[in-house]
């Protein structure tokens, strides 16, 4: 019985080692959003060049939609882009874009002209106003917003077909059923 006492340091070590092991395996860039289940923060963005309408938080209530933060400078957005075009072509769900931190106001529109424009509404956000309101840390990020204008999910990094099928699409379906 007394022997067990000598195992306590070993047990403490193992518990700590397990915590550190799990912690080392986590991606420090993925920060859980505090905005889940909160109303979309108020924002109002001007249109990008070539569009008449901007994008504001008042546009969101009414139906389930995606809000995608992108930029022409963002390499991972290029990777994600063809899949967003496919979602647009299939008419699955409206996708709104926040064109984040373009140094050149023509860069975003040129990028969309070249690779296709999957967005229903796009706002220009050169000074991170909306990006900070959404707690964005990098691009691309995508939020699922429900029909009441509440943020329900945050995807950090590009949406791949697998991520869409396994994570985002089921949430969109569930929110539509509500």
């Amino acid at each position: 019985m007394r022997r067990i006492v000598y195992l306590v340091p070993l047990a403490v070590f193992l518990v700590l080692a397990a915590y550190f092991w799990v912690g080392l395996g986590k991606d420090p860039q993925i920060i859980p959003s505090v905005l889940i289940d909160q109303q979309v923060p108020p924002f109002a963005l001007k249109p990008i060049r070539g569009r008449d309408r901007g994008f504001s938080s008042d546009d969101l209530p009414g139906q389930v939609s995606l809000v995608n933060i992108f930029g022409s400078w963002c390499v991972a957005c290029r990777i994600e882009h063809p899949f967003l075009m496919k979602l647009k072509a299939d008419g699955v769900v409206p996708i709104h874009g926040i064109d984040w931190r373009e140094k050149d106001p023509n860069a975003g529109p040129a990028w969309l002209a070249r690779f296709g424009d999957p967005y229903t509404l796009v706002g220009d956000d050169p000074e991170s106003k909306a990006a900070i309101a959404f707690g964005v840390t990098g691009a691309p990020e995508t939020f699922i917003v429900d029909a009441r204008g509440v943020i329900r999910y945050k995807q950090i990094g590009p949406i791949t077909p697998e991520i869409w099928e396994n994570q985002l699409w089921p949430i969109v379906q569930k929110l539509r059923a509500q």
């Binding site: 920060i31 959003s33 505090v34 905005l35 923060p41 900070i132 309101a133 959404f134 707690g135 840390t137």
Partner: peptide, 9 residues
């Protein structure tokens, strides 16, 4: 305000 956007992190 910043914490309300990004959390305690």
């Amino acid at each position: 305000y910043v914490v309300s956007r990004y959390g305690d992190f």
